[in-house]
Amino acid sequence: MNKTKSKNKFIVKIETKNCKGCRLCIVYCQKKNLKLSEKINHLGYKYCEVIDYSNCNGCGACYLMCPEYCVEIYKE
């Protein structure tokens, strides 16, 4: 689980253990802030990771597109 504060006051939480690596969140991230990890989770998938926490503008595209509901975004 990644939990980091961004400058723009958004906290992105990714429940990586539930991620199936479909990449729907990655293609819609406006800031290109998401990527697939090199590691695999217990389900056997490369999971989604945040590249740069400071960049998030809180648009919610990743939350909206995630079929596994494993992304949450909090306002600081």
Binding site: Y45, Y63, E68, Y74
Partner: peptide
């Protein structure tokens, strides 16, 4: 202060749909 948070209408249990399946989004 929440912006996008998992709904209480969903159980904690992760689902068994295939990667990239739209059912999860609609659920």
């Amino acid at each position: 202060k929440t912006k996008f948070i998992k709904s209480k209408g969903l159980k904690d249990k992760p689902h068994n749909y295939c990667p990239g399946c739209g059912h999860g989004i609609v659920h």
